[in-house]
Structures are given as C-alpha cells and as structure tokens.
Amino acid sequence: MVEAPQDVTKIGTLIQPAAQLTSQRRQTRLRHIVLHVLLSMGAFFMILPFLWMLSTSLKAPGDVFIFPPEWIPNPIMWSNYAKSWTLKPMGLAYLNSIKISTLTTAGTLFTSSLAAFAFAKLRFRGQHLLFMILLATLMIPVQVTLIPLFILFKWINWIDTHWPLIVPAILTNAYGVFLLRQFFISLPGELGDASEIDGCNPFQIYWFIYLPLSVPALVTLGIFAFLYHWNEFLLPLIYLNSLQKFTIPLMLATFQGAYTTEWELLMAAATIALIPVIVVYIFGQRYFVQGIALSGLKG
C-alpha cells in the first residue's frame, strides 16, 4: 500500500471544497433557471389577458372572434383608438375619473394617516374598542349600505353629482387606517416623546415627525386607493345618471348595448384607460413593496 504524499493530500483537501462550491453554484444556477422559467410562465399567463386586449383593440370588427385567433391583427386598425375616443365623451370621462381618483386618494391619505396616528401613537379612553369597531366596518359589504346612502344623498341633493363618490371615500377608509396604523406602530415612540419635550403638539408630531417617515406606506395606500377609485363601477353606476358625469368604467360599459357589444372599440378604450394606472404604479412601485413589507400587509 503506497501512502499518498502529504502535499498531495493537502491539495486534495483544497480542491474538494472548490469542487463542492462549483457544484453548489451549479445547483443554485439550476434552481434559479427553474424558478425563472416558472415565474416567466406565471408572468406570461398574467399578461395574456392584457395582450388579448391589446390585440383585440387593433382588430377590424369582424375579426375579433375569428378562428383560429389572430394575435397580430391584419390589417392593424389604429383607427379604433381614435374612434373609441371620439365616439363618446371619453376625454370628459377621463377627467372625471382623474378628479375623483385624485381627490379621494389625497383625502384618504390625509384622513387615514390622521386616524392611524391617533390609534398608534396617542393614548385615549376606548381606543381599542373604537379601533375594533372601525375594523368591524370592513366586514360590511357595500351593497348593505347602498340603499340607506342613496336615500341620504337624495335628501341632500347629491344624486347625479360626484360628491357621493368623493366624500364617503375620504372619510371612511378603514383599510387605510389599519394599514397606516401598522406602519406607525413600527416607528419608535421616542421620536414623538422627544418632539413633545421640544414643544410639539400632537398634530405637529404627526405632521413633522411621523408623516415624513411614512412615505412608503403612504405611497402603498395611495396606489391602492387610486386603483380602487379608478376602477370603481358600482357606485358611479348607482349615483350617476348623466353621460357627462360618467367615469371611465361607466363610459367603457356604454360600449355594451342591450344586444350587442363593440369589442374592438371597448378594448381600445380600455387600453387608453389603463395608462394612468400604469403611470401611477411605475412612479410608486419603488415604495410599494417597501410599504407592504413594513406595514406587515400583503395583498
């Protein structure tokens, strides 16, 4: 039996971890490839409806349900976009939706953060009970309050105005309060204590100390609120009568008639309607994941 020279054994012990490392790297790379393939497949299926919408928006009326389906339309009907925009007051609907979504989002951020700050950082009698009651309101479906609210808004002559879509949304976002409260709780209380010693009142502590530190959570809530109000269909349907007051989802629904639907125009208009949503998400996405993670909430 011949003993291996000592230096060769040393080399072996040095080589072995290197080989193990390469193997581990290969495994990791393989895992990443598999993961990316799976994620790409998931992303493909998620984006498929969007691609169908885009493809349909460029088709001629008779080609929408042609079999087998044509993903790249022939001819490409760019005119569908111009037609869908001019056929009805889409510009006005766009403006109405921007107005309602922007106001409700800004209002929601302000009122929700105020309430969340109070629940997270102030101490007052009945605090937990009030918070539980607030959370309980999340369980009431909108359909339950539809008729009482309709009667209320009729009394104050708000039917066929945008106010029923803006005011309640600003004042009653329990989800927003919950999300921001979770975030405020994660911020150190000492910041508030120090500010109080320096002479700040509670509103100043909220405004100058905690709010600036809450941008990720505020952006998260802002995106949620904007998307929700941009896509809201039921309440505008109930409260609005005049075509000139219609929001984007309502105007899109007018492409559907009693017996027929103009699919290619509907899809062109829906594609145009998506633009603000994509813009808001692109600008806010940097904070979005951070906000979700820090507030401990997932969609």
Partner: peptide, 24 residues
C-alpha cells in the same frame, strides 16, 4: 406641488363637467 396639481385637475374637471344633462 402635489396640492396645486390636484387643485388644477379638480378645476379642469369641474369646468369640463358643467354641461351635464339635467336630471329628474
């Protein structure tokens, strides 16, 4: 800046929407 932008949008939309069809 954001407040002004919101106010501007609000003003534009308010001006655009005045020609509404009368309601019942």
């Amino acid at each position: 800046q954001w407040s002004l932008l919101s106010a501007g949008t609000f003003a534009m939309a308010a001006c655009a929407g005045v020609a509404g069809t009368p309601t019942a």
